Amino acid sequence: MSLAEHDARTHRNARVRTLILLRHGQTEWNAADRMQGQIDTDLTELGRRQAKEAARELVSRNAIALISSDLRRAFDTASALAEYGSLEVVPEPRLRETSLGEWEGLTHLDVDAGYPGARAEWRLDAAFTPPGGESKLEVGARALPVVRELLVERQDWPGRSIILVAHGGLIAALTAALLDLPAKNWPALGGLANTSWVQLSSHVESIEQPAWRLDVWNAAAKVAPDVL
């Protein structure tokens, strides 16, 4: 690469906003295929180790902000990242997991027995709402303003990264909303492993139309079952 090519690439990268969406570490409920939703569960010992491993990987991403769901499993994962840098974890309730209503606390088998066919429909239809819960479309609409506000508030974002720590369902819904995918295409974004992450980037200066691109899905993790 010539010096001119290197300078041109450096200039382009200086305008790029990078957004990293990290899923929390393992909980006992993850291991038992139990539907957590917004029930506030804790990380397992494995989950805490996963958080530290993710922190070691992401510490080099030149992050300027670390924002987390206020549920413990996400906040504790984010806290592991904070230990590797100088950023403070900012809690954000709008990044909580999907409310699953009557399904929360049930295993997958329990849901399938009590609501035959409903879980499959939920995975395939972004507008489907679990009894007393939220649809994926509602979750995306809830989380999208968090990123829009950051675009306005963080004038220092271009050339750097912001990390949001949240939950599998929330991350999938927010990613689909940022990419402005048609609702019928939302199921194309499958499950995320614990402490895997998604990376999006915006290469334009516009705040109103950032034109997000999907760079990475389910990074640094093996493919996970579609839990949430």
Rank of each mutant, 00 (worst) to 15 (best):
E102I: 12
E102V: 14
E102S: 15
E102K: 15
W103Q: 11
W103I: 11
E104C: 05
G105T: 06
G105F: 02
G105Q: 06
L106W: 09
L106S: 09
H108D: 10
L109R: 15
L109Q: 15
L109E: 15
D110K: 05
D110V: 03
D110S: 05
V111D: 01
V111I: 15
D112R: 13
A113G: 07
A113C: 06
G114F: 00
G114T: 02
G117P: 13
A118N: 00
A120F: 01
W122Q: 02
L124P: 01
L124Y: 07
L124F: 09
D125F: 02
D125H: 12
D125T: 11
A126I: 08
A126S: 14
A127V: 01
F128R: 11
F128Q: 10
F128L: 10
P130E: 10
P130C: 07
P130G: 03
P130D: 05
P131C: 09
G132A: 08
G133L: 05
G133C: 02
G133V: 02
E134V: 09
E134H: 13
E134M: 10
S135G: 07
E138D: 14
V139F: 05
G140N: 07
A141R: 13
A141C: 03
R142P: 07
R142V: 10
R142F: 10
A143H: 01
P145T: 11
P145C: 11
V146L: 04
V146R: 05
V146K: 04
V147Y: 10
E149F: 07
L151N: 15
V152G: 03
V152H: 09
V152Y: 11
E153Y: 00
R154M: 15
Q155V: 13
Q155I: 13
W157G: 06
P158E: 11
R160Q: 11
S161N: 10
S161C: 06
S161R: 09
I162L: 01
I163L: 11
I163K: 05
I163D: 02
I163H: 06
L164C: 03
L164Q: 04
L164K: 00
L164E: 03
V165L: 03
G168A: 07
G168I: 08
G168K: 04
G169M: 12
L170C: 13
I171W: 06
A172D: 04
